[in-house]
Amino acid sequence: MATTADDLIDRRRLRRKLTFWRVCALLVAAVAIIGAAVALFGKEFGGKSVDHIAKVKIEGTILEDEALLKVLDDVRKASSVKGVILSIDSPGGTTAGGEAIFDAVRSLAAAKPVVAQVGTLAASAGYMIASATDHIVARKSSIVGSIGVLAQFPNFTGLMDKLGITLDEVKSSPLKAEPSPFNPTTEEERAMLRSMILDSYDWFVGIVADRRPLTRPEVLVLADGSVFTGRQALANKLVDGLGGEKEAIAWLSSKGVTGSLEVIEWKPKKEDAGWLFSKSAAQAVGQAIGLPGAGADILRESGADRLFLDGLVSVWHP
């Protein structure tokens, strides 16, 4: 009996030791996971829970991007975000995309101070988005402006004639699916497009007149498609100051945001759903024209992604 009792006591001791080491192992694993998460995600993991200034980058061709719109909405809802810097470097893009982001920025600006910091370029729809903020800062040599709207479409009729190709079609009315790259453009088709473009242009000019310290006639003088340096834009009241992130933070400080707060960038969760021409779409186009796997990067870096924009666009083509 004594031996049996000793065995029971030893077993209980062994179980307690095993339980202790199991708990220790779980704690070590938890600490390791948390440490790895902090190392990998850094500010994304814990920094956003404390008061900070949010930075959102808007780069490349402007599209109606759900990932970007969600980021702007998340920033608006975050109580830890005390001020926002929109870092803009864009030649513009689709008019509808600029409109969607403009509305999202206005909604954000109603909740907390927002400043635009222009890098190399904020033109067309890029400038439209910048005008949605409460204050615009640009570099002295930044390119700003190109207020306007356009529609572009190819004309393949000459090529079709050389190849002996004709197009037969039956449609309900003359303007259905026009203008078409397979038919010469008629004056009625141009008049239809011109009416749409002028309506969107009138809306764009109204936005700038409403958001900037300029009268509508003053905006119309500037809204001939011209681009300006940052210094010229300041003189024309298209921007409010010259500088970079430091000056943007200084303006936020004047609105009650503590200047010593850390600036943390907010990004879309999926990198492939960014503000540029999507990688998947660019890869598809690249493959279609015989480019290798890196074709997507070539298209985006060269600006050729803009060739595939559809509908009315507000973009500056360098």
Rank of each mutant, 00 (worst) to 15 (best):
K77Y: 00
L68F: 05
T157K: 08
T19A: 15
I129A: 10
R12K: 14
L69Y: 04
G97I: 13
V221M: 00
A30R: 02
L193D: 04
E245W: 02
W266R: 03
S254L: 12
T157E: 08
A296T: 02
N183K: 12
P174Y: 15
G158N: 09
P292R: 11
N155S: 14
D310P: 00
L309K: 13
G244K: 07
K112F: 05
I147Q: 00
D297H: 07
V205C: 02
R306H: 11
L242T: 09
G164Y: 08
R13H: 14
S131Y: 01
I33G: 04
A294R: 11
R11Y: 07
V263E: 01
A304K: 01
V56Q: 02
D202E: 09
L242S: 07
R76Y: 00
V257L: 05
L312P: 01
V31R: 02
A54W: 03
M160H: 06
L193M: 14
L214F: 09
I249E: 02
E247A: 14
I101S: 05
V81T: 07
F20S: 04
S124W: 07
I143R: 15
L175H: 08
A25Y: 02
L18N: 03
A110R: 14
A250N: 10
V227T: 15
A282P: 05
V144N: 03
E271R: 11
D51V: 01
A177N: 14
S200M: 04
T19N: 10
R22T: 10
F20R: 11
V219P: 00
M192I: 06
G158V: 04
A273S: 09
L252Y: 11
S253N: 13
L261C: 05
T95Y: 15
V149D: 00
I85D: 08
D202W: 00
S260I: 06
D51P: 04
G47C: 04
K269N: 11
G126A: 12
Q232R: 13
D73A: 15
D310V: 15
E178G: 08
L159P: 01
L121H: 09
S124G: 15
S87L: 04
A2L: 10
D199K: 08
G293M: 06
L252T: 08
W251A: 08
I136Q: 08
L14V: 07
S254A: 13
T157Y: 10
I88H: 02
L163Y: 09
W316E: 13
G145R: 01
A25G: 12
L238I: 03
G126P: 10
A282H: 09
G256L: 05
W203M: 10
R300L: 07
T258V: 12
V315Y: 13
S173E: 15
N236W: 03
S173Q: 11
T157W: 09
A78C: 06
A122W: 06
M196P: 01
R139E: 08
E265A: 13
G145Y: 03
V313Q: 11
T95M: 11
A104L: 03
D224E: 07
T120M: 10
H135T: 06
T133N: 06
R13V: 13
P179R: 12
A32E: 11
F45K: 04
L68H: 05
D6H: 09
S146W: 08
L14T: 11
F182H: 02
N236P: 02
R231T: 10
R13I: 14
F41E: 07
I197F: 01
V118F: 01
R216L: 04
G225Y: 04
A5P: 01
L307S: 12
H52Q: 09
